[in-house]
């Protein structure tokens, strides 16, 4: 690792505030932790005595589990507070919850919330380090980082790659973090999806909006599909899954337009046969399970770094 560099962030709220150097440092750190998960005894004492709270206001199995595994492999004490058991249902405000939790002196709070910016607010009210595990349609930085780690492993670089993202860009914090991350590292990002799911101003964020599936996938190094939801808050975004899969689903045939060694990625869980056909999800090009493995390593790195170990 490069000397003379100090990881400058107390909180991980989004990829948007991470520099190129920060990202490489996180990925290098994650790489060095990855080996721990391959050991017979998958535990190091690095964060022994540290308290980590998983504060999840939105249901999540995968991300929460991944953070918990990461924390336990570093010997931290973890506590899970989920929306059903948390005070949110009792009308307590996020600030009250934050102050209450803060009074118990946790070292790290990992928060997922359906409101964009909730982790930013939390960070203003607690002494602990805050890691954003997904906020509304804003960002999901650990996902963006594990995506980059997976690409770097397979491609040996993060620059000069053509990254295609297909699906619901409007509501996808995964897409927003990926766009920020890959463009910052010097790759190009192009997106495609039904026009109802393409937000305004993507060009200013550095992504090119394509007009067909063929265009977005052609010569791509990476094809990332996103989980689709048919309807959100009575907003008629799509007529049916059936139509989505026929018009916007990524098929084996379509993948023929991408580079021969293109990677297929998905943040999970996959709607098989809707946004991604099973033969593509399970093909040799698919790195979906590598993403899951790397997720633990990236999250170990983040826990390690926000504790001032950078």
């Amino acid at each position: 690792m490069n000397t003379g560099y100090f990881f400058p962030h107390r909180h991980i709220l989004g990829i948007d505030h991470l520099s190129r150097e920060d990202i490489l440092y996180i990925l290098d750190t994650a790489e060095s932790f990855k080996e721990i998960s391959a050991r017979p005894i998958k535990k190091v004492p690095t964060l022994r005595g540290h308290t980590i709270i998983n504060l999840f206001f939105e249901p999540s199995t995968r991300t929460r589990l991944s953070f918990e595994v990461a924390a336990k492999r570093m010997s931290a004490d973890t506590f899970n507070i989920s929306a059903s058991t948390s005070s949110a249902t009792k009308g307590e405000t996020l600030i009250d919850t934050a102050r209450n939790i803060s009074a118990m002196h946790p070292d790290i709070i990992i928060i997922r919330h359906s409101f964009s910016g909730a982790p930013h607010m939390l960070a203003r009210y607690v002494d602990a380090a805050v890691i954003n595990a997904g906020d509304g349609a804003h960002e999901h930085p650990s996902q963006g980082l594990l995506d980059m780690m997976t690409v770097k492993e397979h491609k040996g670089r993060l620059h000069d790659l053509k990254v295609a993202i297909v699906g619901d860009i409007l509501h996808s914090r995964v897409a927003h973090s990926a766009i920020q991350g890959f463009t910052r590292m010097g790759s190009s990002v192009q997106v495609y999806g039904p026009s109802t799911l393409i937000p305004k101003g993507l060009e200013q964020l550095g992504a090119r909006v394509c007009t067909s599936l063929e265009e977005v996938v052609r010569d791509a190094d990476i094809v990332m599909t996103l989980r689709i939801q048919k309807e959100r808050q009575n907003d008629p975004l799509l007529p049916s899954f059936r139509e989505y899969s026929r018009q916007f689903g990524v098929t084996k045939q379509l993948m023929g337009l991408a580079k021969p060694d293109a990677l297929v990625m998905h943040p999970g869980p996959v709607n098989r046969g809707v946004e991604l056909m099973p033969e593509v999800a399970d093909s040799s090009q698919s790195v979906i399970l590598n993403q899951v493995t790397n997720g633990v390593a990236v999250r170990m790195a983040l826990l390690y770094l926000v504790m001032g170990n950078g």
């Binding site: 948007d16 964009s116 910016g117 349609a137 305004k200 101003g201 964020l205």
Partner: peptide, 18 residues
């Protein structure tokens, strides 16, 4: 007008409904 801020680049960046 069911969003929370002007629809545009800033809303997209912040992940807020426009």
């Amino acid at each position: 007008a069911s969003g929370v801020m002007n629809e545009g680049e800033v809303a997209t960046r912040l992940g807020l409904k426009g």
